[in-house]
Design a protein around this nucleic acid. Structure first.
Lengths: 255, 255
DNA sequence: GTAGGATGTTGACTTAAGTCACGTCTGCTC
DNA sequence: GAGCAGACGTGACTTAAGTCAACATCCTAC
């Protein structure tokens, strides 16, 4: 099933210090010394093929992961057997933090395309944190950011129409692509409509119709998974009500 | 507007060391020395009257809070002017963590009844954490727990009927009351139906009808805000599908 | 103890999204 | 490059929850 490709040599050699994603997963400036201590424990794993698990729900928790390339979805199994996708994760984002509290992964992480990650063994990180408190503090900040993201997700799902949910998630992806220096207007969705619908609480038929309606309104151009945001301010207006340039996510920035 | 009552003397004298809630906000066993260091920075605030703000959205972030008595709701203002309630918080639970990342509160915290909190100045906590890494590690664990809770909330709101949402939140409250040593079957909801509906993404009319339907089905007895869970296993079955004693929240415990 | 607002309830009607059924497209595998 | 499975799209119909409007009840302040 898995057919890991060989990573480009320079990709493997990349260190945290000169990682292009550094400002995403380590936004505050740690000292060089602190970053290189972190580097010593970080492991670069072989790329994961599309559909493969990075970890599974219920498995023991050993490490957190920073996405380097590709994209990862996390999903959890509901008691009735349904799967629920809890998030999509792009380069520079950290996954596995929800497992710290119980020592077991609460969700499964699955690659949506060939992806690579940095593995950060958690025990080693804690030991390191005892000597380098800034590192531990940085972890707390990253977790706080995740908390804000999750609250944003909950809001996305509360009393919003299908059009609003889709508009909001596309703008959210757009923002995250911009943060990585990519185009915020033209991008490729790495997930199926089924997965996106699952995340948004919408059935695939509704997803299809909603995409079409947004296209008919001239807000998007759609060609399969390629999305072009044709009218960003109208899309924002649709997603968040009355305030086009107000906070894209009421809980995401407020100051 | 606010009319703070004088706290009972022994309530004020309570320290973290012998706090009845200790195992809730500090579940791992820190050493006595560590707990007493924490005690030195914790401040006990005057009780907050019903409807008063503990902090407001957009205000500078200075401290996190542990609820001691009463109950607190957190809410954020959406761009379109609507208010969205992001959570309900009971004694032993910690609030304000989402503000660490941005140095501003992303939500407002409002007392639902006369409540008291421990205020933990965050800067002092970080400084202390540099000397007592266990404390910092405990904070990370608490935040991880919050992350799991938030993911549970998102699941609650995704593709579940009004009956399932209400059943699930009542069971969730029940669990949290049990953790505090209270009855899990008979309790008083501190929030209005309007607030509960806001949190669940349901309109007050639907809340009212849904409560009635659950009562008609013999799952609950309702007298205003007093709730009696009459048939817990049927309620669980309703909330989570097929598995009465399986995981009450797919993402909350999985091992 | 009463007035008045907030909170909660009920019924009739509307509507957005789900369901079912079917057809088409796309991208793998052999 | 044929064949197949999964993903995607469309239409007809159903239904759960929202909306609107009216009324009841509970608090709180005076």
């Amino acid at each position: 099933m898995s057919l890991p490709r060989v990573a480009a040599v320079n990709e493997v050699r990349d260190s945290c210090r000169n990682c292009r994603l550094r400002e995403l997963c380590l936004p505050d400036s740690l000292s060089l010394a602190e970053v290189s201590k972190l580097e010593e424990i970080v492991q670069r794993r072989k790329p994961i093929a599309r559909g493969d698990y990075l970890f599974q729900s219920g498995h023991p928790f050993n490490a957190i992961y920073a996405v380097r390339t590709g994209s990862i979805k996390t999903s959890s199994l509901l008691a009735n057997g349904d799967e629920h996708i809890t998030g999509f994760h792009f380069p520079g984002e950290v996954i596995g933090l929800e497992a710290i509290t119980s020592d077991r992964h609460a969700c499964a992480a699955i690659a949506m395309e060939t992806s690579s990650v940095c593995e950060i063994p958690f025990h080693a990180l804690e030991v390191l944190g005892e000597k380098a408190p800034k590192l531990q503090q940085q972890l707390v900040r990253i977790m706080s950011r995740e908390l804000v993201t999750e609250q944003g997700t909950a809001q996305l799902l509360t009393r919003r129409s299908a059009e609003q949910r889709l508009a909001a998630i596309l703008l959210n992806f757009s923002e995250r692509f911009v943060r990585r220096g990519l185009s915020g207007n033209r991008f490729r969705l790495p997930m199926s409509r089924l997965d996106l619908g699952n995340y948004l609480g919408l059935v695939p038929e509704t997803m299809s119709r909603t995409f079409r309606r947004l296209e008919e309104q001239g807000l998007l151009d759609i060609a399969g998974k390629e999305i072009n945001i044709a009218d960003k301010s109208a899309l924002t207006e649709l997603a968040y009500g009355t305030a086009p340039e107000a906070t894209p996510n009421a809980c995401r920035r407020s100051g």
